[in-house]
Design a protein around this nucleic acid. Sequence first.
DNA 1: CTTTACATGTAAGCGGTTACATGATTCT
DNA 2: AGAATCATGTAACCGCTTACATGTAAAG
Lengths: 185, 185
Amino acid sequence: MALEHAILVSLDERSGSGYELARRFDRSIGFFWAATHQQIYRTLKRMVELGWVSVDEVAQDGRPDKKVYDITPAGHEELRRWVAEPSEPETFRHDLSVKVRGASLGDAAVLADEVARHRDLHGERLDAYRAVEKKDFPDPSALSGRQLHQYLVLRGGVRAEQALVEWCDEVLAALRQDDSREDRR
Amino acid sequence: MALEHAILVSLDERSGSGYELARRFDRSIGFFWAATHQQIYRTLKRMVELGWVSVDEVAQDGRPDKKVYDITPAGHEELRRWVAEPSEPETFRHDLSVKVRGASLGDAAVLADEVARHRDLHGERLDAYRAVEKKDFPDPSALSGRQLHQYLVLRGGVRAEQALVEWCDEVLAALRQDDSREDRR
DNA sequence: CTTTACATGTAAGCGGTTACATGATTCT
DNA sequence: AGAATCATGTAACCGCTTACATGTAAAG
């Protein structure tokens, strides 16, 4: 389980409230680790108990009070330990692949539409990642340390989305060709 | 949740026992949907209750009795319904990316070794997928129907593993260059 | 006046992971 | 003799998803 560690990485970059963390997970961190606000609140609570993070309750006027979390030395130590620890690749779970494999039962045209929709979604993500790449990392060869690591993870996102877009295109082309071949029979 | 539907897809191709299904999930189906035998047994039980599959208890000599499951018309209908239903892309959870992003705290060389290990693992999977591709689908342009769908899913696996191998290589090169640059300081 | 942003939580339920349990046969 | 294959299950735990709950302030 890496949610705790993803939170530690995020807090190591900047301290913040549960709400703020949830927003970071919607953006940058969420590119490679998804989490909802409920999950984050619960996990932060546990992490306080473990001594990995500290809380500071901040009163605000005009806005609800917030709890600002910060990484502790014990949290740093845990993160270092976990990063050094070997881990297995995540197991794949790809809905759309299951559907493609089950396509023979149903309407191929309906599935093609769904694949096209996914291609567009992944295309949008790809464009967004590339925009960040261009804006925040214009000269990759000059990067080092933390910035380099952030860039490399972004590159992973770019590669993953690119692969998905290309796969969707391949599936679409094949499904359409198969469909037209069927018509000729 | 697609485990039930992944099982339906598998049973639609050939009926089988829970044990047999678990083995299929270790192989072909597992390329895009992982599941353990416990999960499969529990899910099959539920699917019988739902009327999506039927059971046939088969006595064997020299081996334990087995329960052979088969897809029912209701199961077919459910699978067709589910394939036609739109679904959102899976949320990413990529351990290694979190570790790369947390790399600045620890030993970069240790992480590099771990990335190298993952590159090799993905390289092995890639080779295995390509071997299946070559052996089972020597002439992709001639494929149609179910065979084509199987091939397309395999292509997704090839693309995904290829992207991961290339990303690991990119990370490795960058980490090593950054490391040597640090030494010069 | 409605939506979005800010801000945090409880509760129920479900799915997935891991450990444990059993027992015969076949292969090394 | 020990490991792997065949074959199915129970139990405990944990994490994740979804629904529900509350309330202010700013922006459209």
